[in-house]
């Protein structure tokens, strides 16, 4: 605080300046909340897509977020690839991990009851995390920002170029996602599977292929989220747990929709978390997400917006 350099009138000064300071702060927290919220939204959509195709909550979703960041780092530093090449490589390897996960852990299951599947995804999550720790160690790493870290000032608050990258990439991904599900035949087939699996198989849709597809899309979304957030929050073998749970929370707020409801859920969560951490105490940051999660599950288990049915995928 600048107030410290004015010992005489310190209290007076602070009291006067407080109101505008807080407005700026709120703006600042909201901006950073929106960008973390966008990340939660991407992860949440990943949860919803798998849930709608299979009825599984894939608790390994967070690990694909971690893989995105760690693999990008791997391609950047060990293989000395430029960023534009490292990102697609990292996404491709994550997608491959998603395929292997579905093929080796989900598909062979004899009695695919929801509880068995959920336990398997938790086991998968622990396994992936463990392998990542063996491969890359326990250190926290940073990925360089995509285009410098010169802050940009907007209405008294400052944002980093990376925040803009995050928001822009999220908007782009959501647009592509929407196009895929509503305007391509494979996307329509996936929606058909989520509405009525029996009828889908009757018209020749291979439901198991659609399940695989849902894992691919979700791992791509998760890894992209992990890549774009890594320059801001750093990455390590265990970042997947918290990010995964926050994404799950966004999906619950959005009623497991893979459309706008989950995006809004992610943004609400990001902003509330950021405001809570900034204005109350940063110690409560994670608690806020889980309080929201519990409240939604108790009061509105169908999601904040209720009629999620029409845009479920």
């Amino acid at each position: 605080m600048k107030g410290n350099s004015l010992p005489m009138k310190g209290r007076e000064f602070l009291r006067k300046k407080r109101t505008p300071m807080q407005l700026e702060q709120i703006l600042q927290y909201s901006f950073s909340g929106l960008s973390t919220g966008a990340i939660y939204a991407l992860i949440g959509i990943g949860f919803s897509i798998i849930f709608n195709a299979t009825g599984i909550i894939n608790f390994a979703q967070g690990e694909f977020v971690m893989l995105g960041g760690m693999l990008t780092l791997f391609f950047l530093e060990l293989l000395q690839l430029p960023l534009w090449a490292a990102v697609p490589c990292a996404v491709a390897v994550s997608a491959l991990a998603g395929i292997l996960f579905e093929r080796l852990a989900i598909r062979p299951l004899r009695q695919p009851t929801p509880i068995n599947l959920v336990i398997i995804t938790i086991a998968g999550s622990i396994l992936i995390r463990g392998l990542a720790m063996l491969l890359w160690g326990k250190d926290t790493h940073a990925i360089p920002p995509f285009s410098g870290d010169e802050p940009i000032s907007i209405a008294g608050a400052t944002i980093l170029p990376q925040h803009i990258w995050i928001l822009a990439i999220t908007v782009l991904i959501i647009a592509v996602n929407k196009f895929f599900f509503y305007h391509t035949i494979s996307g329509k087939a996936m929606r058909a599977c989520s509405y009525n699996r029996r009828a889908a198989s009757l018209v020749g849709i291979d439901v198991r292929r659609m399940v695989l597809l849902s894992f691919i899309i979700s791992s791509v979304l998760g890894s992209l989220a992990g890549i774009i957030v890594a320059p801001l929050t750093m990455t390590a073998y265990d970042v997947g747990i918290m990010l995964g749970l926050k994404g799950f929370c966004a999906a619950i707020i959005g009623g497991m929709s893979s459309g706008m409801a989950t995006v809004v859920g992610g943004l609400i969560l990001g902003v509330l978390e950021s405001l809570g951490a900034g204005l109350i105490s940063s110690g409560y940051k994670d608690a806020i997400a889980f309080i929201i999660l519990l409240l939604i599950l108790f009061i509105r288990p169908q999601g904040l917006f209720g009629k999620a049915e029409s845009e479920r995928v």
Partner: peptide, 9 residues
Amino acid sequence: QNIELFGAM
């Protein structure tokens, strides 16, 4: 017999 459609599409 009980029509199976993709109701939301």
